[in-house]
Design a protein around this nucleic acid. Structure first.
Lengths: 169, 169
DNA sequence: GAATAAATCTAACGCTGTTAGAAAAGAGGT
DNA sequence: ACCTCTTTTCTAACAGCGTTAGATTTATTC
């Protein structure tokens, strides 16, 4: 994506872009912002399909991966791959996203299973695992392709819950 | 990093670079290659400090993170952030790296604890978690800075082993 | 319709990766 | 030492990039 191509696509000259955005990074920040909004919505929607916390967590994880798989270029930009550095605003949205996962589903699971939970720590760990699997899966660096990556995600979620149930806080 | 700056640094003119490399990506591929070689060496060295599989695994994980933290720009390039697409060669090296972790340490742990282990699956899961935590930690997207990230890594490794011990293959 | 404000353009600057072709440096033979 | 040939290195240039200054067109208001 270049400023000139963007200008071409909307049938304006390049400088017109700069009437609405400070620079190219500002344009992409907007894209990133929208991306996170959409991703969050899809995750929440996926989680809402069930009322069983374990199922919700798996659904959320799969939604995360499928989003990355469906729009790999967007996902790349959203996470600072592709040369666009993340600014503070984007990081804030990120944290909010992690929070959305933890606050809702993890909390429900904890009370239901009478497990003491450091919600922040738990959500960050789960999020990291999902993020790692997603990056590797979406860039085809895991054997066995799509279904296998989804199975790995399922296993990761299950392992995560097992560990917390056994070890607690 | 630009071709002209590289040429300046070695006190040659830009076209000279193209006598030794096909293009800029080829130069960076070389850098990535060397990066993975060094990372693998550091992980193996860290693992060799102990003979207890649990400790080895933690040491390997921390070495992975510390490498990324010490040379964030290199780590970024190594994983396709910064606009350089990964080619097949690099992915192969990646798989080899994951293999190095699993083949050695995980196998020892499994026989010692009489746990049935899908080594590939286990190593990919562990690797993904490490990768995710490292990316988020090295780009300061986890609360609490460096020590906390290392504690999260320790917890992740412990959780990983707990889950496999409890659930097995 | 003239004057002002807003939107958009053309032209240019300095940067990038890359290539063609000239110049310089080195090697071998007489 | 000189000429020839090969290898190495350079200068100059092209097309594309993000970005800015300043002119020009379009819209708004009296």
């Amino acid at each position: 994506m270049t400023v000139r191509k963007l200008a071409d696509a909307i049938e304006y000259s390049p400088p017109t872009i700069y009437e609405y955005f400070d620079n190219k990074d500002a344009v992409l920040s907007e894209v990133v912002q929208n991306g996170f909004t959409e991703l969050t919505r899809e995750m929440q929607s996926a989680g809402g399909q069930s009322t069983v916390p374990e199922e919700q967590l798996l659904a959320v994880g799969l939604a995360y991966y499928r989003f990355a798989k469906a729009q790999p270029e967007l996902y790349r930009i959203m996470h600072g791959m592709g040369g666009v550095p993340l600014d503070a605003r984007v990081v804030a949205v990120n944290a909010q996203l992690a929070g959305a996962v933890s606050q809702g589903v993890l909390h429900n699971w904890a009370v239901k299973n009478a497990v003491q939970l450091d919600e922040l720590e738990a959500s960050e760990l789960l999020w990291s695992t999902l993020h790692g699997l997603t990056i590797l899966g979406a860039s085809n660096r895991l054997e066995g392709g799509d279904e296998r990556t989804e199975r790995l995600i399922a296993r990761a979620v299950r392992d995560f819950l097992t560990a917390w149930r056994v070890q607690g806080v």
